[in-house]
């Protein structure tokens, strides 16, 4: 049986009819057209579907939509600030931290979650916490540099 739920996504409240087994990814993409969240494996193994829930990184392809009720969901569409790129987004652009762009939203949101936990994570922490986000194009180096360059800008709030 479908049921109506309310989800808070990027600051807006959406009322959506879902089945209990609908994943958050299905709701975001197929019901709300928020296509920035990508489906790469549907198995929680590639990180392309990463969203933030109350600031923490979650894999939306293995999370039920109903489990996100009452929480603040942030997708890549909600990250920029009044049309201006978020510092992480800008850093990915300027440092060439992307190629095909398919993993990019998930990479950026995971990086945001890391920087939300600690302002100046070590290189090892970044590598370990981003290891769940796969990229087949870049070899990770420029993505890593893009994230590092943001952590080096002191005093910023993310």
């Amino acid at each position: 049986m479908k049921q109506a739920i309310e989800l808070n996504i990027n600051g807006d409240t959406h009322e959506i009819l879902v089945s209990p087994n609908n994943t958050l990814l299905e709701v975001l993409r197929d019901k709300l057209g928020l296509m920035g969240t990508k489906r790469g494996c549907d198995l929680g193994a590639c990180g392309a579907c990463t969203v933030l829930i109350n600031g923490d990184a979650y894999l939306s392809c293995i999370m039920l939509a109903v489990d996100a009720i009452g929480k603040e969901i942030l997708t890549i569409e909600g990250l920029d600030e009044g049309g201006d790129l978020h510092p992480l987004q800008r850093s990915f652009v300027e440092n060439g931290g992307l190629q095909c762009g398919f993993c990019t939203p998930g990479m950026i949101l995971t990086a945001k979650a890391i920087l939300g936990e600690e302002k100046h994570p070590t290189e090892e922490v970044i590598k370990r916490k981003m290891a769940g986000n796969l990229c087949r194009c870049t070899g990770y180096k420029k993505i890593f540099e893009a994230v590092m360059s943001v952590t080096e800008q002191s005093g910023k709030e993310f």
Partner: peptide, 16 residues
Amino acid sequence: LPMMDAAQKVKGTALF
């Protein structure tokens, strides 16, 4: 130079 579509890709508006 950054890719011309880099901003689209980081904003999640690049359409596959």
